[in-house]
Design a protein around this nucleic acid. Structure first.
Length: 461
RNA sequence: GGCCUCGUGGCGGAGUGGUGACGCAGAGGACUGCAAAUCCUUGCACCCGAGUUCGAUUCUCGGCGAGGCCUCCA
């Protein structure tokens, strides 16, 4: 409990000491995926970054004292479009459910492969429509929202300090510079809280007619439901600062009459692929699934732990260039790390301090690498390594080897040593090669005292 | 146009007003029958210009370059 975390806060543009509202229940909200298609590696970054933060918070405040909420956005016009495209024969609601359930399952498989713990709660937008309607009702009631042309809109001008997060005062924005201003808006920056649905769009009954929520309101509703009106940390990608997070803040604060929505706002940087911007419009994005299970990237599949480490080799606020070269380097590092099981040991101070300093995973990984070298042949160091690696979620798992295989390999190793003594190199190498083909790597060493050859082996990861 | 990042050796990536982390790759070596693994040695980098200074990669200003947001996107 003595560790003090220092976190960079987008709200203040400063790195400050983190003090939870309630150390017995530290609360974090992270914007999750819209479930209409495979998640790409841009989605993987916040999942991994905030997973590290989750692990760190659990370590500092105790596992039972951290609540991590990450939403599933399952109402969205992109989902509707996908449902109509992929399931033209089904009734709309069933088609939508088919899309969202499949995508959600896939997302969970992907992030699990990336070594991410499950959030404490993972609420769905469609399970929180009533909460959204309640908040919208409040906003209309206290003059922060109005009804126009069948939509409920947030009245940005009604909020004195709108734009604090993005440092984007309303007056200074070029109104409608790149998007036509809808005539029914009182101000160009006003955004939709609720909009009416046609028959071929999903909708819910509300005081303003059968409709569906605007983009931002779900996070206000779900964060309040699970974390309260004011909570500790809100995270997401850099590109969400405006308008999404700005508008979440506006909705929540105006509905609840609070000065802040979350105390600390954290944003991870952008992801590029091989030096180029990844964008949906250009179609050059790489999905997590592609990396894990296909040979689309670099002509091979990549283990989840390699992807995770590659992601953590750059500080979360910096842009990251996802490249084959980077993945190869990550893989070489992991290959040098010992497999171990987390025991009761405490993580190394260097790793802890690095992470406590605004999630400096780069320094943490380097410290970890140094530990890995010390751990070579030192059980105590190995335990510290394991605990430290677990904090980052990059602990190579000890491959379970069944005893029959182990004794068979041991016998072959003994046989090989006999052959070596007889200088029968051909036969000895044959054994070595056959084992290698089965994924078993022999490692010859020398007993420091006797000078005898000592052979150990491991299952290649 | 507004707002905002970033620019360090082949690559990744720290850091500091006064000999220059570290990792990966590469090179050399030890060990080995040969490999692998392991260990040792090795890297003279800080976008450009001006300014401040005894001295700047580190501070200031100005360029140039890369990128992001302002519209669905992590």
């Amino acid at each position: 409990m003595s560790t003090t975390l220092r976190l960079y806060n987008t709200l203040t543009r400063e790195k400050t000491a983190f003090a939870p509202i309630d150390p017995q229940n530290v609360r974090m909200y992270v914007c999750g995926p819209t479930v209409y298609d495979y998640a790409h590696i841009g989605n993987a970054r916040p999942a991994i970054v905030f997973d590290v933060l989750f692990r760190l918070l659990r370590h500092v405040y105790g596992e039972a004292h951290v609540t991590y909420a990450r939403n599933i956005t399952d109402v969205d016009d992109k989902i509707n479009a996908r449902a109509l495209r992929d399931h033209p024969g089904l009734p709309l609601n069933e088609a939508i459910r088919a899309v969202t359930e499949k995508t959600e399952t896939q997302f969970h498989e992907d992030v699990a492969a990336l070594g991410c713990l499950e959030p404490t709660v993972e609420p769905r937008a469609t399970d929180n429509i009533a909460e959204m309607i309640e908040i919208i009702g409040r906003l209309i009631g206290n003059g922060h929202a109005y009804v126009a042309s069948g939509e409920v809109l947030f009245h940005t001008k009604s909020m004195r300090d709108y734009g604090q997060l993005s440092k984007r005062p309303l007056d200074e924005q070029q109104a409608g510079a790149r998007v036509a201003v809808d005539a029914h808006k009182k101000n160009p920056g006003d955004f939709v809280l609720w909009k009416l649905s046609s028959h071929n769009e999903p909708g819910w009954e509300s005081p303003w007619g059968r409709g569906r929520p605007g983009w931002h309101i779900e996070c206000s509703a779900m964060s309040r439901r699970y974390l309260g009106e004011v909570f500790d940390i809100h995270g997401g990608g850099l590109d969400l600062i405006f308008p999404h997070h700005e508008n979440e803040i506006a909705q929540s604060r105006c509905a609840h009459g609070t000065d802040v929505m979350a105390n600390v706002w954290m944003h991870n940087g952008f992801v590029q692929v091989e030096g180029r911007k990844m964008s949906k419009s250009e179609g050059n994005f790489v999905t997590i699934h592609d990396l894990l299970h296909t040979e689309k990237f670099g002509g091979r599949q990549w283990p989840g732990e390699v992807l995770r480490l590659a992601m953590l080799m750059t500080h979360y606020r910096e842009p990251i260039d996802f490249s084959v070269k980077r993945l190869e380097e990550a893989e070489r590092l992991i290959a040098k790390w010992p497999a171990a099981e987390a025991s009761g040991a405490l993580p190394c101070d260097t790793v802890m301090n690095a992470l406590a300093d605004d999630l400096n995973t780069v320094a943490a990984v380097q410290a970890l690498h140094a530990l890995a070298q010390e751990a070579h042949g030192d059980p105590d160091a190995l335990a510290v390594f394991a605990a430290s690696a677990a904090l980052l979620g990059v602990l190579p798992e000890k491959t379970e080897v069944d005893e029959a295989l182990a004794s068979a390999v041991d016998a072959l190793v003994a046989m090989r040593l006999e052959m070596l003594k007889a200088k029968n190199f051909a036969e000895a190498d044959k054994i070595r090669n056959e084992l290698a083909d089965k994924g078993i790597q022999l490692k010859d060493g020398k007993d420091p005292a006797t000078g005898e050859r000592v052979t150990t082996w491991e299952v290649k990861r």
